[in-house]
Design a protein around this nucleic acid. Structure first.
Length: 788
RNA sequence: GCGGCGGUGGCGCAACCGGCUGACGCGAUCGACUCAAAAUCGAUUGCCCUUCGGGGCUUGUGGGUUCGAAUCCCACCCGCCGCACCA
């Protein structure tokens, strides 16, 4: 028998698959869907450097499912592409010199090579990258549709500003209130920004969770992020100005307990108060780093001298300005109820303000006039109803979710296709002039102005509407815009008339299984759902959710922290694949533990996996030499059938991807000393067939040696239910709940016969020790428990 | 503070619906092969006691339900993750 040489075997089969285009799929002719479709997708990689073991876990998981579903008869679409715009490429270019495009494309070439080396079953014909003009042309086109529909707009908003680097930073680039790169303290600045109106879909994003099979915790994170709270908006009149100020409250039941009133320092009313003390406080509070302000601690504030009237009882309440009230939640003003809100209480205690209890311990209203005695929730509804009749309140929903800021003052992203014109304002670039190509610039370092603004030739264009002097938008789109629709483009990747054809996306979508990190719960996974809902409302797609089923792979950590290029703690698969083979690496990462839990990467397991594959090689080769015997119904045949049942159930139903490997190992362990058993051939075929999604190269080679071909197209094996029935089983006998003996008995004995068998055991008799039997518990097929 | 996840041998973990705890692998120990080592093959491997028959203990802690609990319930401890002066 020849030696197992993974490098040779793997090269051989990778060439065969490529030559035969084994994993490329054609779009169906209309109405010819006799095979069900299955859209398998993992979150696309960011092409920074090399793949690390986190990627290997992600894509190997997807690969297992790709093979599993292919062999269950589905046409599996499993495309690949690159999230190739964005800051890391730009930062790498700044650090190493060179153009972000060159660095990105070099990285793509390298990652593609790594992916092929690992043998992942990918339809490379559909490869698409965000930075290709053929792709971002349609990102821009979609932006224009959003703009036209009023779902993209520009407004002043606070952003993170690094005074040292002279640039706006994304939230992800701010670590503990400091610039990730230079360490300078980040300031809040009010700048004009582009936004997507994702808040218009807040309810749909919560409600449609009912339509998708996602981990409960991911839905919880999204719900939490969207933060829908039910309450009421109540109008308080400012006595001195004779003006109504609305507040949002989730506790209208506590209205009678309001003892003061607080404005956020940014509240427009504050600027109109003629007091040096108030102005000074507001200025200080606004300048305070957001991080510090959010940290809480000692309450600060100043009294304004103004008063509001509580609409429920006409009481005059003093108006304060305090920075514990946030301008961007609710209305930026609150009624303060120190008896029933911890923060209000703290403030009241600091400044000696009165505290009035209005909800008694049992949850009924007190000190609340004619609402006394009502249960709190019902009382709140009654109070709002009563105020509503007087036009002083209405029930309201409030959200924590903010609109999505997507413009970046950076170079390496899709240009935003609009022109500013003094006469016409913001003018969209006409569709037939798309894409607005990303031009080269002298220096793409951020210097307070978006880098594109330095390219005068590109920047200055006539206004598309009036022909007068115009200026292009120099900001670029965040890369999350690109990744909000890439999965649609894979369905129709070469279309040059539209982003995609509806018939094609309606055929392939929604994605049947999506795999990616939970870190995208409030970003990519929310944005993509938003995009699809908008496209659905426009009739461009026939579905409301992009990802029907979602699985999060766990972090792969090294030294206790998540592997990532920016942390510098990465280990890649290349060297291990050379030493032990891609199959061993694939098996190792999936065998380390449950795929959805964090795992600390250590290469120790690869050696053991190499050992297992050599063992598999030897045992299957030996079994292949044996004349094809009849599988029969002996112990080995039964073990093979049990393994088929176990592996199929684990992958298909339980979404456990480590335990099938253990089950196949058990089968191989049983087969090893019995390669001349009549069932040896059958057991070997089962082991090879079952390991194929995990270790497709060695499986294919061994399958050929067993005298067959094209395992990747063979139907998934099925367990014979008759063989899963056992003729005998191991009876466990307990005395008073403790196991005292176990032995084989024939299946199908009656309960009395089982008790009889149990009592026949000398060990059991010794434990009973002549005492009287009080109770006999019989679990057929399993155990007898004798209580004495 | 709110929400979520987890705690089982020296280690990674398995035990699916309340029924044999520790499958599978790593590591370790012993043996075979070898001049020797590696590789490979075989055996042992939760802890304690043992007269070697066996006995006791064991799933973070304490309680409860049950014939029987890693699994269900209550309280608590520890670790990780998300959100957070959100009214």
């Amino acid at each position: 028998m020849d030696k197992y040489e993974p490098a040779t075997v793997e090269r051989k089969w990778q060439e065969v698959w490529e030559r035969e285009r084994a994993f490329y799929v054609e779009d169906p002719a209309p109405g010819s869907a006799e095979r069900p479709k299955f859209y398998m997708l993992e979150m696309l990689p960011y092409p920074s450097g090399h793949l690390h073991m986190g990627h290997v876990l992600n894509y190997t998981l997807g690969d297992v499912l790709t093979h599993f579903h292919r062999r269950h008869g589905s046409t599996v679409l499993r495309p690949m592409g690159f999230d190739s715009f964005g800051l890391p490429a730009e930062n790498a270019a700044i650090a190493e010199g060179g153009h972000p495009r060159e660095i990105t494309e070099e990285n793509i070439v390298n990652i593609r090579r790594q992916m092929r080396r690992l043998g992942w079953a990918i339809d490379w014909d559909r490869e698409t990258s965000a930075h290709e003009p053929e792709y971002y042309r349609w990102t821009q086109w979609l932006f224009l549709k959003f703009l036209e529909a009023g779902l993209a707009y520009r407004k002043q908003a606070p952003v993170n500003w690094c005074p040292n680097d002279q640039t706006v930073l994304a939230n992800e680039q701010v670590v503990d209130g400091r610039c990730e790169r230079c360490g300078a303290e980040v300031e809040a600045r009010n700048l004009e920004q582009w936004f997507f109106r994702i808040t218009a879909y807040a309810d749909a994003l919560i409600d449609d969770h009912a339509l998708i099979d996602w981990p409960e915790r991911t839905k919880a994170i999204q719900r939490n992020w969207i933060g829908r709270s039910e309450g009421a908006e109540v109008l308080f009149k400012v006595e001195e100005l004779d003006e109504d100020i609305p507040v949002f409250t989730t506790r209208p039941d506590t209205l009678f307990g309001a003892t003061f009133f607080v404005l956020a320092p940014e509240h427009p009313l504050v600027a109109r108060i003629d007091s040096d003390e108030v102005r000074a406080y507001a200025r200080r509070a606004v300048a305070r780093p957001a991080e510090e302000r959010a940290a809480g601690g000692e309450k600060t504030g100043v009294e304004t001298g103004l008063h509001v009237v509580n609409p429920v009882n006409g009481e005059r309440l003093p108006v304060w300005v305090a920075d514990y009230v946030l301008i961007d939640y609710g209305t930026g003003a609150i009624m303060a109820v120190p008896a029933h809100d911890e923060r209000d209480r703290e403030f009241a205690e600091t400044f000696g303000l009165p505290i009035v209890e209005v909800v008694a311990g049992a949850g009924t209203l007190v000190n609340s006039d004619r609402f006394d005695g009502l249960e709190a929730a019902a009382g709140g509804r009654a109070i709002v109803e009563w105020l509503e009749e007087q036009g002083r309140a209405q029930p309201t929903l409030n959200y924590r979710l903010r609109d999505w800021s997507f413009s970046r003052q950076r170079y390496w992203g899709s240009p935003i296709p609009v022109v500013y014109c003094d006469g016409c304002g913001i003018v969209p670039v006409p569709e037939d002039e798309l894409p607005v190509l990303l031009p080269d610039v002298e220096d793409y370092r951020p210097k307070g102005q978006p880098p594109l603004a330095s390219n005068e030739e590109w920047l200055n264009v006539p206004c598309p509407r009036c022909g007068g002097a115009g200026r292009r938008e120099a900001e670029t789109m965040d890369t999350f815009v690109d990744s909000s629709w890439y999965f649609l483009r894979y369905c129709d990747p070469r279309n040059d008339q539209a982003p995609f054809e509806r018939a094609l996306v309606d055929y392939w979508m929604p994605i049947d299984q999506y795999i990616g990190g939970i870190d995208h719960a409030t970003g990519h996974l929310l944005y993509s759902r938003f995009f699809v809902k908008v496209l659905n409302d426009w009739g461009m797609v026939g579905f409301r959710e992009p990802f029907a089923r979602l699985f999060h792979q766990g972090w792969v950590t090294q030294g206790g922290t998540k592997m990532s290029k920016s942390k510098g703690n990465v280990s890649g698969p290349d060297q291990l694949a050379e030493l032990y083979g891609a199959d061993a690496v694939r098996l190792t990462i999936l065998f380390m533990g449950p795929a959805d839990q964090a795992m600390e990467w250590t290469p120790d397991g690869v050696e053991g996996m190499g050992r297992f594959l050599r063992r598999l090689w030897r045992v299957v080769n030996e079994a292949a030499e044996a004349a094809p015997g009849k599988a029969g119904n002996g112990a080995l045949a039964r073990k093979a059938h049990e393994t088929i049942a176990k592996v199929s159930d684990d992958i298909g139903r339980r979404r456990h991807y480590n335990t099938p490997i253990a089950a196949i190992m058990e089968l191989v362990n049983e087969l090893a000393p019995r390669t001349s058993d009549p069932a040896a051939r059958f057991a070997a075929e089962a082991a090879v067939s079952l390991i194929q999604p995990y270790a497709p190269h060695v499986a294919e080679e061994l399958w050929e040696r067993l005298g067959h071909s094209r395992l990747w197209e063979q139907p998934w094996p099925e367990a014979d239910p008759a063989l899963l029935e056992r003729e005998t089983f191991e009876l466990v006998v307990q005395v008073n709940g403790k196991v005292r003996d176990r032995f084989e008995v024939p299946a199908g004995l009656s309960e009395d016969e089982l008790v009889e068998q149990a009592l026949s055991s000398p060990r059991v008799q010794a434990q009973i020790d002549g005492r009287e039997l009080r109770k006999k518990i019989v679990v057929p097929g399993k155990l007898v428990n004798l209580v004495v």
